[in-house]
Simulated scan of single mutants.
Amino acid sequence: MLDLATVTLASLFAGFVDAIVGGGGLILVPALFSVFPGAAPATLLGTNKAASVWGTAWATGQFAKRVQMPWSALLPAAAAAVVGSAAGAWTVTLASPDGLRKALPFILLGVLLYTLARKDLGRTHTPHWTGRTQALLASAVGLVVGFYDGFFGPGTGSFFVFLFVRLLGYDFLHASASAKLLNTATNASALVLFALKGHVWWHIAAVMAVANVLGSLLGTRLALKHGAGFVRGVFIAVVAALIVKTGYDAFLQPG
């Protein structure tokens, strides 16, 4: 019972953070591995997806009610993200992600330093492109980051947000809202794969999903209330935490 309470609380907090700017996996995945150290990693990852996909989907719906979403660009981008995720998952069966694991902390550090240096970055919503061009660029982001999500994964939401801000000219609020849709698509795709392989603890995932949606509700309300500046601040904090976590995993973790 204590184990379930622990991962449920982690799921609540993960949903809260994920709704604002992504990065919920930074909280929930380590919690699952800590509480259930003897379980198969695929089962824990599948259970994580089964819980978090609902919070991400809920956040997408909440943002869509209050933020103007460019559906003509985002729907093709979501489809591209699913294709990229599947391709990344297939590639990881052929090649090891060890090189990327060691490079990731430095890539994230570059994202953080760039964001800090450009103090105006993502504070105003001024899309650089419209129509087909916007759809093509959004789809390219979906394909590339979706591939990364399937191949390795940590920081996927942060990469979606950063690229929507940097390449498409979105503010952090609109970028986070857009990232939620793409993250929902990739998470749902991964969940189908895990479920077909029997790698989901549905009885635990159901309880965590409720908590994740509640956390998502709180996070979305805060993001909508305080706007792009607040989301930017949380983005910086999450990327900094990801640098520490991925750096430890790549260079300091025993074994």
Results as ranks from 00 to 15, higher is better:
Leu4His: 11
Ala5Phe: 15
Val7Phe: 11
Leu9Pro: 02
Leu9Asp: 13
Ala10Asn: 09
Ala14Phe: 06
Ile20Asn: 01
Val21Trp: 01
Gly22Asn: 05
Gly25Glu: 04
Leu26Ser: 04
Leu26Ala: 06
Leu28Pro: 00
Val29Ser: 11
Leu32Gln: 10
Val35Glu: 09
Phe36Glu: 07
Gly38Ser: 14
Pro41Gln: 10
Ala42Cys: 09
Leu44Gln: 02
Lys49Ile: 09
Thr60Tyr: 13
Gly61Ile: 13
Ala64His: 08
Arg66Tyr: 07
Met69Pro: 01
Pro70Gln: 07
Ser72His: 08
Leu74Met: 12
Leu75Thr: 11
Ala77Ile: 07
Ala81Thr: 06
Val82Lys: 00
Gly88Phe: 09
Ala89Ser: 12
Thr91Tyr: 07
Ser96Cys: 12
Ser96His: 08
Pro97Tyr: 03
Asp98Glu: 14
Leu100Phe: 11
Ala103Leu: 15
Leu108Ser: 06
Gly110Asn: 06
Val111Gly: 02
Thr115Arg: 00
Thr115Asn: 01
Lys119Arg: 15
Arg123Cys: 08
Pro127Gly: 07
His128Pro: 05
His128Arg: 15
Arg132Trp: 00
Ala135Leu: 01
Ser139Arg: 01
Ser139Phe: 03
Ser139Thr: 02
Val141Leu: 13
Gly142Asn: 04
Val145Thr: 03
Phe147Asn: 00
Asp149Glu: 13
Gly155Leu: 09
Gly155Arg: 02
Thr156Asp: 04
Ser158Ile: 01
Phe164Pro: 00
Phe164Leu: 14
Phe164Ala: 09
Leu168Gln: 08
Leu168Ala: 06
Asp171Val: 11
Phe172Arg: 01
Leu173Asp: 03
His174Gln: 13
Ala175Asn: 04
Ala179Glu: 12
Lys180Ala: 13
Leu181Cys: 05
Leu181Glu: 04
Leu182Trp: 08
Thr184Tyr: 05
Ala185Ile: 09
Thr186Trp: 05
Ala188Gly: 10
Ala190Ser: 14
Ala190Gln: 05
Leu191Glu: 02
Val192Asn: 04
Leu193Pro: 02
Phe194Val: 06
Ala195Tyr: 10
Lys197Ile: 13
Lys197Thr: 13
Trp201Leu: 15
Ala205Gln: 08
Val210Gln: 07
Asn212Lys: 09
Asn212Arg: 07
Asn212Asp: 14
Ser216Gly: 15
Leu217Asp: 11
Gly219Asn: 06
Gly219Arg: 05
Thr220Glu: 12
Arg221Trp: 15
Ala223Trp: 01
Leu224Cys: 06
Val231Tyr: 02
Val231Leu: 04
Arg232Asp: 03
Arg232Ile: 02
Val234Phe: 06
Ile236Met: 01
Ile236Ala: 00
Val238Met: 06
Val239Arg: 00
Ala240Phe: 07
Thr246Cys: 08
Thr246Ser: 11
Tyr248Phe: 15
Ala250Arg: 03
Phe251Met: 07
